[in-house]
């Protein structure tokens, strides 16, 4: 009885260190997304790098505000929940030997966490009791319906190919060829999903500038800061999950595994954020149709192709 407990206690410092590293990685990924976003918006690189610290200082100095009859508890839960979700996602990613939260169901957990974002963004829009916020919240629900199904089927493809839901096993199964190469449709659908739960790029309508930033309209100060950081962090976390799923995990020449995982996550985050900054925000009703009538059938077809190849190959 005492042995397993002592064992657990002995592992505590390592776990604490891992948690700090995961938090640090999320911050670095979020900052990368912010810098890349700034460059895409036409700012110089140094200005883009200074943007996040300056905005953080500005918003930390700014007061908090509330609105008439706001649902304050749910509103704040929605805003402050985004960043922790990103940290949990990062904790699932196998870096080097193991993930901070290893397990045989990593793919399922990643999916479950991205669905939590549905609730958070909607609550963010709902809580402020404002027209712009509600419009943003409902836009997000509509978009979430659109991107989530392709995203779920995209997650199925690597799991079928590796015959496992364990992210570490999925990563190891790509020793010969990255899944991003031979299942490109699933990879693209996954990235669209990442843009969706990070509420950016073409899927940024819920925080659309033309409805006064929608779900963010009534936020100020630290409450706005955590939401902005949370969106960048979610983009980084989504990119980091793509590393074991589609980009061969830690495989790569010369450098240790852990370095490759971080490097790939940084590069993908930067690319994704840049694309998000360059692509126009599309109107909600115009996204639903292509997401369901084009992307979803294509992803299902991709799953079928993967399944047939796996069965015939083995």
């Amino acid at each position: 009885m005492t042995d397993p407990l002592a064992d657990q206690l002995a592992r505590l410092p390592a776990a604490a260190l891992g948690a700090v590293l995961a938090l640090g990685l999320v911050l670095v990924l979020a900052w990368t997304a912010s810098v890349s976003r700034g460059v895409a918006a036409g700012r110089a690189v140094p200005a883009s790098m200074a943007h996040a610290p300056a905005e953080a200082a500005r918003l930390l100095r700014q007061g908090r505000r509330t609105t008439l009859s706001a649902d304050r508890l749910l509103w704040r839960v929605g805003g402050w929940g985004l960043f922790p979700v990103a940290v949990l996602l990062i904790a699932l990613v196998p870096v080097g030997e193991t993930a901070l939260l290893p397990g045989s169901l990593g793919v399922v957990w990643a999916n479950a966490l991205d669905v939590v974002v549905w609730a958070l963004v909607w609550l963010l829009g709902w809580g402020a009791n404002s027209v712009a916020g509600l419009v943003g919240g409902y836009r997000f629900l509509a978009l979430a319906l659109g991107y989530e199904l392709p995203l779920m089927f995209a997650l199925v493809a690597p799991a079928i190919a590796a015959s496992s839901l364990d992210l570490a096993v999925v990563a190891d199964a790509q020793s010969s060829l990255w899944y991003a190469v031979w299942m490109p449709v699933a990879f693209v659908a996954y990235l669209v999903g990442v843009l969706g739960f990070a509420v950016s790029g073409p899927l940024a309508a819920p925080v659309g500038s033309e409805v006064s930033d929608g779900a963010l309209a009534e936020l100020s100060g630290p409450d706005l800061l955590v939401v902005r950081a949370g969106r960048h962090a979610l983009m980084g976390a989504g990119a980091a999950i793509a590393v074991p799923l589609f980009l061969g995990g830690g495989s790569g020449p010369w450098l240790p595994d852990a370095v490759w995982v971080v490097l790939k996550a940084l590069l993908l985050t930067g690319a994704l954020a840049w694309a998000a900054g360059r692509l126009p925000t599309l109107r909600t009703h115009q996204l639903m149709e292509p997401l369901w009538t084009i992307l979803l059938p294509l992803v299902v077809l991709q799953d079928l192709v993967v399944a047939v190849l796996v069965v015939s190959g083995s």
Partner: peptide, 8 residues
């Protein structure tokens, strides 16, 4: 600023 809430 996109809305008065976050404006300086």
């Amino acid at each position: 600023a996109p809305s008065p809430a976050s404006a300086d």
